[in-house]
Nucleic acid binder design. Sequence first.
DNA 1: CCGCATGATTCTGC
DNA 2: GCAGAATCATGCGG
Length: 349
Amino acid sequence: MDEQPRLMHSHGVGMAGHPGLAQHMQDGTAGTDGEGRKQDIGDILQQIMTITDQSLDEAQARKHALNCHRMKPALFNVLCEIKEKTVLSIRGAQEEEPPDPQLMRLDNMLLAEGVAGPEKGGGSAAAAAAAAATGGVGADNSAEHSDYRAKLSQIRQIYHTELEKYEQACNEFTTHVMNLLREQSRTRPISPKEIERMVSIIHRKFSSIQMQLKQSTCEAVMILRSRFLDARRKRRNFNKQATEILNEYFYSHLSNPYPSEEAKEELAKKCGITVSLLSSQVSNWFGNKRIRYKKNIGKFQEEANMYAARTAVNATSVSAHGSQANSPSTPNSLFNTNDEEFNGFCDLK
DNA sequence: CCGCATGATTCTGC
DNA sequence: GCAGAATCATGCGG
């Protein structure tokens, strides 16, 4: 115990383990000629070079002695403060970075695609089942859709396991570094603040890795989308029966060819096409029909006549001996420019 | 292979 | 969010 005051007084704590070194430094600063200073630096270097020659026990003993010194906490704090002012304050300025917009976009997209966020439908099997259930009509369509869902859930699974792995690795690494720094803080001036900063640096690094994962997941989803959903462009013409049903409705509602949601559903069911899978085929059909009919009424005249005649026949046969006045639109009334129904729609332009 | 038909998508205005 | 308009892309007959 009586050793410590002596260290303090004669050599200074910093050089406690190397009294000679401290002595030389003191001499060096006091001396006026450069020769002596060079000599001192040479000595210091020499001592640094031979530091590894010391036995570990010796080093441990010195470390212990240092740690037990009663002035140690105070000095530690002072050194931390100095370090803080000279080094850390410079880069401490650009903290509190705003949330990366790129990362936010990726997050949003993953969330929208159902890759991130809460599990929907629980697993691929359930997703496929749900797809099959909602598909109803158009077997190939729902099969395609469930395939898409299965692939998406695969991506989702990979994403989550990877993310978990990264998080685990990050935590492990953080703990490791923190322990290391805490351990080193016994011999080096490392403040808790500095450890905190190091942790945030590590987290930043790992989140940039996560961002890469998110990026590649997004890319995978985009590729999947283009392979499956955008294959909707791979047009299949409706069968003849479906077209007839749609045309029948169209020409018998020529005055107002805008089927209600219920009517659309009914038509979709009859035709075996979708009504609300991303976009309604019925709505597409009516949208296209309206615009094309209006653009070239002449071209559709024959078709219109035919369907009008057909509905007229149906109407008469249904209402047994009823007059044709009950028919929604007779062939004659359809193309009579004085007809209210006809004008009603055609005036829309 | 060409050109038209047609289902789907995108853009725009309301 | 819907309808209209333009456009894209494929299907299909000749």
